[in-house]
Protein backbone atom coordinates (compact mmCIF):
# COMPACT_ATOMS: atom_id res chain seq x y z
CA UNK A 1 0.00 0.00 0.00
CA UNK A 2 2.81 2.40 0.88
CA UNK A 3 5.00 1.11 -1.88
CA UNK A 4 4.99 4.22 -4.03
CA UNK A 5 5.76 6.70 -1.18
CA UNK A 6 8.46 4.30 -0.04
CA UNK A 7 10.08 4.27 -3.47
CA UNK A 8 9.83 8.05 -3.74
CA UNK A 9 11.42 8.37 -0.30
CA UNK A 10 14.33 6.13 -1.33
CA UNK A 11 14.96 8.20 -4.45
CA UNK A 12 14.76 11.51 -2.54
CA UNK A 13 17.03 10.38 0.31
CA UNK A 14 19.66 9.15 -2.13
CA UNK A 15 19.38 12.27 -4.29
CA UNK A 16 19.68 14.81 -1.46
CA UNK A 17 21.97 12.82 0.81
CA UNK A 18 24.26 11.73 -2.00
CA UNK A 19 24.25 15.13 -3.71
CA UNK A 20 25.15 17.09 -0.58
CA UNK A 21 27.65 14.53 0.68
CA UNK A 22 29.46 14.23 -2.65
CA UNK A 23 29.67 18.04 -2.96
CA UNK A 24 31.13 18.40 0.52
CA UNK A 25 33.68 15.69 -0.15
CA UNK A 26 34.63 17.15 -3.54
CA UNK A 27 35.08 20.68 -2.16
CA UNK A 28 37.09 19.49 0.84
CA UNK A 29 39.30 17.13 -1.13
CA UNK A 30 40.65 19.45 -3.77
CA UNK A 31 40.99 23.08 -4.73
CA UNK A 32 39.85 22.22 -8.25
CA UNK A 33 41.35 21.10 -11.51
CA UNK A 34 44.30 22.69 -13.26
CA UNK A 35 46.97 21.93 -10.65
CA UNK A 36 50.68 22.05 -11.44
CA UNK A 37 52.10 18.88 -9.89
CA UNK A 38 55.85 18.70 -9.35
CA UNK A 39 56.67 15.58 -7.35
CA UNK A 40 54.77 15.90 -4.07
CA UNK A 41 54.20 19.63 -4.61
CA UNK A 42 50.92 20.99 -5.90
CA UNK A 43 49.89 24.53 -6.88
CA UNK A 44 46.89 26.14 -8.51
CA UNK A 45 48.09 29.10 -10.57
CA UNK A 46 44.65 29.89 -11.99
CA UNK A 47 42.51 29.34 -8.89
CA UNK A 48 42.06 33.08 -8.33
CA UNK A 49 41.24 33.99 -11.92
CA UNK A 50 38.12 34.16 -14.04
CA UNK A 51 39.43 31.10 -15.89
CA UNK A 52 39.17 28.88 -12.80
CA UNK A 53 36.93 25.85 -13.21
CA UNK A 54 33.56 25.66 -11.38
CA UNK A 55 35.01 23.44 -8.65
CA UNK A 56 37.83 25.90 -7.98
CA UNK A 57 35.38 28.83 -7.90
CA UNK A 58 33.08 26.94 -5.57
CA UNK A 59 35.95 25.93 -3.34
CA UNK A 60 37.32 29.45 -2.99
CA UNK A 61 33.83 30.85 -2.32
CA UNK A 62 33.43 28.32 0.46
CA UNK A 63 36.93 28.59 1.93
CA UNK A 64 36.95 32.40 2.00
CA UNK A 65 40.70 32.78 1.74
CA UNK A 66 42.43 35.60 -0.07
CA UNK A 67 44.48 33.95 -2.77
CA UNK A 68 47.73 35.18 -4.25
CA UNK A 69 47.23 37.14 -7.46
CA UNK A 70 49.56 36.38 -10.35
CA UNK A 71 52.05 39.22 -9.70
CA UNK A 72 52.09 38.40 -6.00
CA UNK A 73 53.11 34.79 -5.82
CA UNK A 74 52.22 31.14 -6.05
CA UNK A 75 51.68 28.76 -3.14
CA UNK A 76 52.80 25.15 -3.40
CA UNK A 77 51.66 22.59 -0.85
CA UNK A 78 52.94 19.07 -0.19
CA UNK A 79 51.25 16.41 1.92
CA UNK A 80 53.63 13.56 1.13
CA UNK A 81 57.36 12.99 0.72
CA UNK A 82 59.02 11.99 -2.56
CA UNK A 83 58.07 8.34 -2.09
CA UNK A 84 54.40 9.22 -1.66
CA UNK A 85 54.15 8.56 2.09
CA UNK A 86 52.30 11.08 4.23
CA UNK A 87 54.40 13.65 6.09
CA UNK A 88 54.12 13.08 9.83
CA UNK A 89 55.65 14.80 12.83
CA UNK A 90 57.16 11.51 14.03
CA UNK A 91 59.63 11.46 11.19
CA UNK A 92 62.51 13.66 10.12
CA UNK A 93 62.68 14.94 6.56
CA UNK A 94 65.23 16.70 4.41
CA UNK A 95 64.21 19.23 1.82
CA UNK A 96 66.93 19.59 -0.81
CA UNK A 97 67.30 21.17 -4.20
CA UNK A 98 66.31 24.38 -5.92
CA UNK A 99 63.08 26.32 -5.97
CA UNK A 100 61.76 27.78 -9.22
CA UNK A 101 62.89 31.33 -9.95
CA UNK A 102 61.37 33.67 -7.41
CA UNK A 103 62.43 36.83 -5.62
CA UNK A 104 61.52 35.41 -2.20
CA UNK A 105 59.98 32.28 -0.82
CA UNK A 106 58.55 31.26 2.54
CA UNK A 107 58.22 27.75 3.97
CA UNK A 108 56.13 26.55 6.90
CA UNK A 109 54.26 23.48 8.10
CA UNK A 110 50.62 23.27 9.23
CA UNK A 111 48.50 20.50 10.67
CA UNK A 112 45.72 19.44 8.28
CA UNK A 113 42.95 22.06 8.50
CA UNK A 114 44.99 23.82 11.17
CA UNK A 115 45.98 27.44 11.48
CA UNK A 116 49.38 28.50 10.15
CA UNK A 117 52.03 28.70 12.89
CA UNK A 118 52.61 31.95 14.73
CA UNK A 119 55.49 34.12 13.58
CA UNK A 120 56.28 34.88 17.23
CA UNK A 121 56.85 31.23 18.13
CA UNK A 122 60.10 30.42 19.94
CA UNK A 123 61.07 27.71 17.45
CA UNK A 124 61.81 28.32 13.75
CA UNK A 125 58.34 27.33 12.52
CA UNK A 126 58.69 29.33 9.31
CA UNK A 127 61.68 29.98 7.07
CA UNK A 128 62.24 32.30 4.16
CA UNK A 129 64.76 32.67 1.39
CA UNK A 130 66.72 35.41 3.15
CA UNK A 131 66.98 33.53 6.43
CA UNK A 132 68.35 30.16 5.28
CA UNK A 133 71.90 29.00 4.74
CA UNK A 134 72.69 27.58 1.33
CA UNK A 135 75.18 25.14 -0.11
CA UNK A 136 78.03 26.55 -2.24
CA UNK A 137 75.98 25.94 -5.40
CA UNK A 138 73.04 27.90 -3.99
CA UNK A 139 70.79 24.90 -3.42
CA UNK A 140 68.81 24.28 -0.26
CA UNK A 141 69.24 21.75 2.50
CA UNK A 142 66.56 22.10 5.19
CA UNK A 143 65.82 19.62 7.96
CA UNK A 144 62.16 19.29 8.91
CA UNK A 145 61.75 17.71 12.32
CA UNK A 146 60.21 18.02 15.76
CA UNK A 147 63.67 17.95 17.33
CA UNK A 148 66.34 20.56 16.78
CA UNK A 149 68.75 19.85 13.93
CA UNK A 150 72.00 21.47 12.90
CA UNK A 151 71.94 23.77 9.89
CA UNK A 152 68.58 24.92 8.56
CA UNK A 153 65.84 23.56 10.77
CA UNK A 154 62.10 23.89 10.25
CA UNK A 155 60.33 22.99 13.49
CA UNK A 156 57.17 20.90 13.29
CA UNK A 157 54.78 20.84 16.23
CA UNK A 158 52.91 17.67 17.13
CA UNK A 159 53.41 14.11 16.05
CA UNK A 160 50.46 14.02 13.66
CA UNK A 161 50.42 14.48 9.90
CA UNK A 162 51.33 17.89 8.53
CA UNK A 163 51.36 19.78 5.28
CA UNK A 164 54.21 21.89 3.93
CA UNK A 165 53.49 25.20 2.22
CA UNK A 166 56.19 26.75 0.06
CA UNK A 167 55.10 30.13 -1.26
CA UNK A 168 57.06 31.70 -4.10
CA UNK A 169 56.72 35.48 -4.10
CA UNK A 170 57.05 37.41 -7.37
CA UNK A 171 57.68 34.39 -9.52
CA UNK A 172 57.29 33.82 -13.27
CA UNK A 173 55.90 30.39 -12.34
CA UNK A 174 52.62 32.08 -11.36
CA UNK A 175 52.04 33.66 -14.74
CA UNK A 176 52.94 31.02 -17.28
CA UNK A 177 52.00 27.58 -16.09
CA UNK A 178 53.61 24.83 -18.05
CA UNK A 179 55.70 27.06 -20.33
CA UNK A 180 58.82 27.07 -18.22
CA UNK A 181 60.60 24.06 -16.84
CA UNK A 182 59.88 24.13 -13.13
CA UNK A 183 61.71 22.10 -10.52
CA UNK A 184 60.76 22.01 -6.86
CA UNK A 185 62.95 20.78 -4.02
CA UNK A 186 62.68 17.13 -3.09
CA UNK A 187 61.48 15.88 0.30
CA UNK A 188 63.34 12.79 1.53
CA UNK A 189 62.47 10.93 4.71
CA UNK A 190 65.56 10.40 6.84
CA UNK A 191 63.97 8.26 9.51
CA UNK A 192 61.33 8.05 12.19
CA UNK A 193 61.47 8.07 15.95
CA UNK A 194 64.73 9.05 17.57
CA UNK A 195 67.03 9.79 14.69
Amino acid sequence: MFRVPFLVAIALVIAFGGGIWSTRVALDATVGFGAIKLGPWEAFPEAQTEKADPYAKSHRANAGRILYASAEGLSFTAQTDDSGQRLTGNCTYRLTGQTPTARFWTLFATAPNGLPPSANADLPVALNSRAVLRRPDGSLDISISQRARAGNWLAVSGAGPFRLTLTLLDTPAAGSSGLIDLAMPGIQRIGCGNV
Partner: peptide
Protein backbone atom coordinates in the same frame (compact mmCIF):
# COMPACT_ATOMS: atom_id res chain seq x y z
CA UNK B 1 18.18 8.85 -6.69
CA UNK B 2 21.71 8.59 -8.03
CA UNK B 3 20.86 10.63 -11.12
CA UNK B 4 19.24 13.20 -8.84
CA UNK B 5 22.32 13.23 -6.61
CA UNK B 6 24.57 13.89 -9.61
CA UNK B 7 22.32 16.74 -10.75
CA UNK B 8 22.17 18.23 -7.26
Amino acid sequence: GLVGAALL
